[in-house]
Design a protein around this nucleic acid. Structure first.
Ligand SMILES: Cc1cn([C@H]2C[C@H](O)[C@@H](COP(=O)(O)OP(=O)(O)OP(=O)(O)O)O2)c(=O)[nH]c1=O
Ligand SMILES: [Mg+2]
Length: 706
DNA sequence: ACAGATAATAAGG
DNA sequence: CTAATCCTTATTATCTGT
């Protein structure tokens, strides 16, 4: 049972039909063997096979009776799904052909007739159709592609250029409909319903049907089920090849009008960009997407909005063609001898016991050819932003088990670029994650939700470095001294964005302003002269008014705490920073652990120095220290560091109480990724309402599907 | 029971 | 000669506090 994995060719992509898969896989294998990547891929493959085996055991344990029973129960769900079928809209999926590669070929005619790919020797983003004949495709390392096709020309990508071209494409589409949404630079869903209605003419005015006879125009893009003998065939066929203009004379029938409109759209895209697009025409996003692949490149495929036609169409589909079914799902399903979409229905009674309710519902909806017919409308807002870098293997820890300088530098750079990108979109987020890919290709991630949204380079770096430190501690546990954790990738992500009015609230004290001539007030953002006493006085009053005015500010109590703390600061912890003061922390004594705040050391001394002179103490009336409301330790009165400490402390509290609880008794519960479906569709009487609700909720979710 | 946080997995371009 | 991306979203399981 060796299914497809990262070590074998993924065909099934447009332009990759009928290749010598045998030969190609041999070359890939040859080029890969022994590498760390290969070893990791093998490991993952084994793990997957293991899970598949487990599932098969569960499958074996199912009696025919139980399966039958589930089938009956699932039929209710099928009926419910069926009742949601809506084929009234004309949904189109537009997908540029070999997009990046096509742009490069357009701009450099020397690349026109050679196999080429965009990317580098390490990784290709995509390839042109000539290169695909050799098995060269996206997500393949360039050096392996070269072995498959020694004449392959690899050109570096230019994302900005593709982005600009993408904008042109969107401009063209916006002339057709306002209801469209871009899934990527080269993919768009459009709702053409309205346009189609507007451009449909009455039969008596139809160029083709002046007379009553309704002529079905068959084209290359006709669905198999509806191909029939008709007179318009040759005309439509040739039009389809040429790809622009209206290929069908008839403008009185819905399907023909969509066909013509989309042909026109694709023509306009080509006029504007000199690039070709393919399109799928159907009644929902799922079907449209599948269809857009069928006549690639530079073609279109229409699937008639007819229930039987749709059912026949999906039934014969290879399971892997379904968007949402990737290599893992395929492995599970093919092990169950489910290879076509029709098998999903046939084996629904089995699926019910092996997959989650959501997955079963997704499968059934798929088999019914159902999908979302809503494009655009809501959201459009991004939910996370991340940057990551791959580098030659690098030690994470130095000889003292501190973060190595190289890693710190990486983290600093990543934080900077991420902060810039956040700033460009005026975003700030509460959750910071780091990602570490070890030299073994194993991926580790850690995240922490702060009590406030942050966006500055310094804030991001501060939290990210803390997370990385904690991860390092964790991974170093029980390891002999001298052990090095070595990584090949480091990444930083920010999510849980807050609304723009809520962001830049109290606590996003940006260190960026500190070295400059002016400092920005973290509350009102006013630029103030870089003098500590007046600055702090300003911030003080700002915070006071802010706290009282904004009860919605969830960090309000944390902000107030240091202000309300009585002057009980113990002087024993002089220069403490966060990690030293947190309970249970083996603290780093270096201030250098807090990047971007070196200048704060100066500020601290400046503050303290001036405080002795001045009666006006910033933030609190005492020795430049605040008390952590959680652990009661005295801390520097640096807002960012203070907040980091609190976030950490809150977490620590949770963790340690959890540890206490757990250590009291045995903790069991084996993990189960695919739960058997006992609490799902199968139910009786009272539970049914609840389940129905859960299902209809997830129904909505799953129906979005694109 | 529910909601939030976390970490891993899966999938897509 | 080496070399296996980068970015975004969703789902799932588990654990936590309420
Ligand atoms: C798979 C992949 C795609 N891409 C980019 C490059 C592609 O040109 C672009 C669109 O992806 P696709 O639409 O999947 O591929 P394509 O447009 O190159 O070819 P076609 O549609 O004709 O099959 O996405 C990446 O940048 N990284 C990746 O890992
Ligand atoms: Mg494409």
């Amino acid at each position: 049972m060796t299914g497809p994995n990262s070590l074998t060719l993924n065909d099934g992509k447009a332009g990759m039909e009928g290749l010598d898969k045998e030969r190609i896989n041999k070359i890939i294998r040859e080029a890969s063997k022994g590498s760390k990547f290969f070893q990791h891929a093998e490991k993952k493959e084994k793990e997957l096979q293991c899970k598949v085996e487990k599932m098969l055991l569960e499958r074996k344990a199912l009696s025919d009776q139980v399966i039958k029973q589930s089938e009956v129960e699932l039929d209710a769900l099928v009926a419910r799904l069926e009742s949601t079928r809506d084929m009234s809209r004309d949904i189109v999926h537009v997908d540029m052909d070999a997009f990046y590669a096509a742009v490069e070929m357009r701009d450099n005619p020397a690349l026109k007739d050679v196999p080429m790919a965009v990317g580098g020797s390490s990784m290709l983003s995509t390839s042109n159709y000539l290169a695909r004949r050799y098995g060269v495709r996206a997500a393949m390392p360039g050096f392996i592609a070269k072995k498959l096709c020694p004449d392959l020309v690899i050109v570096p990508g230019n994302h900005d250029k593709y982005s600009a071209v993408s904008s042109q494409i969107m401009d063209v589409i916006s002339k057709y409909t306002t209801e469209f949404s871009a899934m990527s630079l080269d993919e768009v869903y459009c709702d053409m319903t309205e346009l189609v209605q507007n451009r449909t003419v009455p039969p008596e005015l139809c160029p083709e049907h002046g007379s009553p006879e309704t002529v079905e125009s068959a084209t290359r893009g006709r669905s198999p089920a509806s191909v029939q003998t008709d007179s318009g065939q040759s005309k439509s066929e040739s039009k389809n090849e040429s790809s622009h203009g209206s290929s069908i004379l008839c403008w009185c029938r819905r399907e023909n009008v969509v066909w013509n409109v989309v042909a026109e759209l694709r023509g306009d895209i080509e006029l504007a960009t000199q690039l070709t697009a393919s399109a799928g025409l159907s009644c929902n996003t799922f079907l449209a997407k599948v269809c857009s692949d069928l006549n690639k490149p530079n073609g279109q495929y229409l699937l008639s909005p007819d229930r039987e036609t749709v059912l026949d169409f999906v039934a014969q589909l290879d399971i892997k063609k379904v968007p949402g079914i990737g290599r893992v799902q395929q492995a599970y399903l093919s092990a169950l001898e489910i290879n076509k979409v029709s098998d999903l229905i046939a084996q629904r009674g089995v699926l019910a016991h092996l997959f989650t309710a959501g997955t079963v519902q997704f499968y059934l909806a798929t088999a019914l050819g159902l999908g979302s017919n809503q494009v655009s409308s809501e959201e459009g807002k991004c939910k996370s932003m991340s940057t990551e870098n791959t580098f030659t293997d690098m030690d994470v820890n130095d000889e003292n088990n501190k973060l190595s300088p190289e890693i710190k530098t990486m983290l600093s750079e990543l934080s900077a670029t991420l902060a810039n990108r956040l700033k460009a979109e005026n975003l700030a987020g509460e959750t910071i994650s780091i990602k570490l890919k070890l030299a073994t290709f194993e991926i580790l991630q850690r995240s922490r939700t702060q009590t406030h949204a942050i966006s500055s380079k310094e804030d991001i770096e501060l939290v990210a470095r803390d997370l990385l430190n904690l991860l390092l501690r964790e991974k170093l546990e029980g390891k002999p001294s001298g052990f090095r954790l070595t990584a090949r990738l480091l990444g930083v992500r920010v999510n849980k964005f807050v609304t723009s009015t809520k962001q830049s609230s109290l606590l996003s004290f940006t260190g960026t302003s500190c070295p400059s001539k002016t400092w920005n007030c973290p509350v009102c953002e006013a630029a103030l002269p870089a003098q500590i006493v007046p600055f702090n006085r300003h911030v003080d009053t700002c915070i006071d008014s802010h706290v009282t005015n904004q009860e919605t500010c969830r960090s309000g109590e944390l902000v107030k705490s240091p202000l309300l703390v009585e002057e009980t600061v113990s002087d024993k912890v002089e220069n403490d920073l966060v990690s030293q003061s947190c309970p249970g922390e083996a603290g780093d004594k270096e201030n250098a652990e807090f990047p971007g705040f070196d200048h704060f050391k100066d500020n601290e001394t400046e503050k303290r120095g001036q405080k002795r002179k001045s009666a006006e103490a910033p933030f609190n009336g005492e020795a430049g220290k605040w008390l952590c409301p959680v652990c009661n330790k005295a801390l520097t009165s640096n807002l960012a560091i203070f907040n980091l400490h609190i976030d950490r402390c809150l977490l620590q509290g949770r963790d340690s109480s959890a540890t206490r609880k757990e250590s009291g008794g045995p903790v069991g519960a084996a993990k189960k990724q695919r739960t058997s479906c006992d609490e799902t569709i199968t139910c009786t009487n009272e539970e049914s309402k609840e389940v129905a609700q859960r299902q209809s909720e997830s129904l909505l979710r799953y129906f979005k599907r694109a």
